[in-house]
Design a protein around this nucleic acid. Structure first.
Lengths: 365, 365
DNA sequence: AATCTTTATGTAAAGGTTTTCATAAACGCA
DNA sequence: TGCGTTTATGAAAACCTTTACATAAAGATT
């Protein structure tokens, strides 16, 4: 496009030096009333607006933060992002959003849709962003690659970095960890207290910490209750509705006689419920469902979905605080944990076997 | 954070000029093998990475595009954004995402959460982004303010701008318009063909073009079919599940005897179905539902939601093409239209009155 | 009237890079 | 040996702004 108006042009037009124009625009230093007016008029007339690149070059800050996330189309991430953006904007920062599509089946299938996190780190460095937020992704891969670890360490040495995910020792970031296990244990105990004995687990990717943690907690809880924990009760895949649907089909095809199931998140729960319905089963009459990570519209689904609230609002606030703190140098590398909570709605009830009355007599359904 | 390594430091360390280092890094010009190796080692050892700000200052391009949208947490926008981001990244561009929260009840309620579009325009100008994409927002306000119009014109004169929304005459942007009316007419005709005569309309904000267009098409279609078009059949509010829920409550409280309803989008449809359920009504046995803008998981809901597909995938591709084209100077201000299509699933069936058989005999439910 | 202060403005450096132009050395060829 | 050509490298300008410092004029103080 056409070259834009520079401070020099305004200066020439007003027969003053560029320093004077700068003083007028930034209201710094002293300028006589007459000169000020002349310059202000020229600025308005020509539509002068300062070049942020030149400013950043001098001030050494870009008022920009990088956010690297697996997939913003995932409602969990988009809700979190919105929260963060609001706070960032209010603090005067802009956000550059980078999707890695790391946690998604398309990535697994080898379709390379975006850049890797390492590549994004390099770009953040070049662009001199004031700080970086990394949400999940490779950090949550159980067998994390050494090159990723090195890249993250390098980044964190050069600029403030906040990570939402599994903490890695000796990497100088602020780590924010979602404590998922506790919520899952609560959920399993709740299902057991309703009388369920065979509880399935659906969705999530093997090899990802979040899934591994939740799956581990599920097994621990079952073991503590002396309930069966067969491998055939577990079906992992990914994090979307289609994956829940597929998991449901697989579990049913296996002929597993579960009366309750944990879904890794709301989307998976949705797909799972759909698969059950297609198989002639009703929730919660035939099968009870709990989502391990509620983030959206759970209370409007039919039936209203019982789930674990990971307190994402709080998480969002912690993230912002940590990130802005790190940028301003007021927060140190640290580990912050968020505690989840079970929200009971309508998608669970005692199993038929344990309860003599018929499904037709059930309330609300 | 600590100052980063500059080209000058590498140059000094290798006893060469900065020009030589630049030549090595960018593989331009001629450099002797010995020097090249020495410099490359120093670059690797010190972890030199060029300052993109300085580069942009010279090259007059930032490889950054601005995206201004109402609310990325809305699945419609996040899906679109993901599409656009993939293409942008592949073309080497980064995206700065700005939420205005313009279309959202929180904005209406006067809570100022973000910047206005005008403010974002100014920021885009200052940051010298290579192009801007504006999705909806004030452009879709029926009574658009003059100051907004002026700001958009100013922006479009200075950099490439693509707008998804209502085209405004004499503003030099590429406008991409979603043709919503046609889909709504198809939907109404479909409901009428099933035998519905009293069809409600739920959700959307009054004063917004998308809502106005769809509402207008709804009224036109009803009029053409000589069906009733009472005001009490219409309940607007906003675009989220809570709004659909509320609209449902209002319609039911009014005692309106509708047998079918159009929801402005999937989220509203979800809330509306929940409200009906809470009132003891089933979809589709008692009320048929169609979403005017399907974007997510419609096929997993219970019942599977019939809706109008606005072909957002195609839209995304058009947007990317237009934006990159505008940035590279290969596309002119223009008007592009997308045609919608009705996708029939399970949420509609003939009304009880028109069909003698009982709800219990209905298939699939 | 001489000196000190304040006010207004300009000059120039700095920020990090790319790129054009200039220079110098090495090389090929008659 | 001398001249033209290629190869390797450096110097300096340009991009746009902010800011420290310098300068000059005007005003205040003795």
């Amino acid at each position: 496009m056409g070259k834009s108006v520079t401070i020099r042009e305004i200066a020439e037009e007003c027969h003053v030096s560029i320093a004077t124009v700068s003083r007028v625009f930034n209201d710094s230093g002293t300028v006589s009333a007459a000169t000020r007016q002349r310059v202000e008029e020229a600025i308005a007339r020509r539509g002068y607006t300062p070049n942020a690149l030149a400013r950043s070059l001098i001030s050494d800050q870009t008022m920009t933060l990088g956010v690297i996330a697996p997939d913003i189309a995932n409602p969990y991430f988009s809700a979190l992002f919105t929260l963060i953006e609001q706070a960032a904007i209010q603090a005067g920062y802009f956000l550059v959003l980078c999707n890695t599509f790391y946690i998604s089946s398309s990535y697994q299938q080898g379709q390379r849709m975006a850049r890797t996190e390492e590549e994004y780190f390099e770009m953040m460095l070049r662009r001199k962003v004031d700080g970086v937020l990394v949400i999940g992704g490779q950090i949550d891969v159980v067998e994390m690659s050494q090159s990723y670890r090195a890249a993250l360490t390098n980044l964190a040495r050069r600029m403030p970095v906040v990570v939402i995910g599994r903490p890695i020792p000796d990497v100088p970031c602020v780590f924010i960890e979602k404590e998922s296990g506790g919520g899952v244990i609560t959920a399993v105990n709740y299902l057991a207290s309703l009388g369920h004995r065979r509880i399935a687990f659906a969705g999530g990717e093997p090899g990802i910490t979040i899934t591994a943690t939740r799956l581990g907690a599920y097994r621990d809880a079952l073991a503590a209750l002396r309930l069966p924990c067969d491998e055939e009760l577990v079906c992992l895949s990914d994090y979307y509705a289609k994956d829940g649907y597929q998991a449901g089909q697989v579990l049913l095809a296996r002929g597993v006689d579960f009366t309750a199931a944990l879904a890794i998140n709301d989307s998976v729960a949705l797909g799972l419920m759909r698969a059950l319905k297609d198989h002639g089963l009703s929730v919660p009459q035939d099968v009870s469902i709990i989502s391990c990570d509620q983030f959206y519209n759970s209370e409007y689904l039919i039936p209203r979905l019982t789930g674990i609230d990971q307190h994402n609002e709080l998480l969002g606030k912690l993230v912002i605080q940590a990130l802005l703190g790190a940028v301003h140098g007021t927060s140190e590398p640290a580990l912050i944990k968020c505690m989840p909570e079970l929200v009971v709605r309508e998608s669970c009830q005692p199993p038929r076997q344990a309860v003599p009355r018929e499904g037709a007599a059930m309330p609300n359904q």
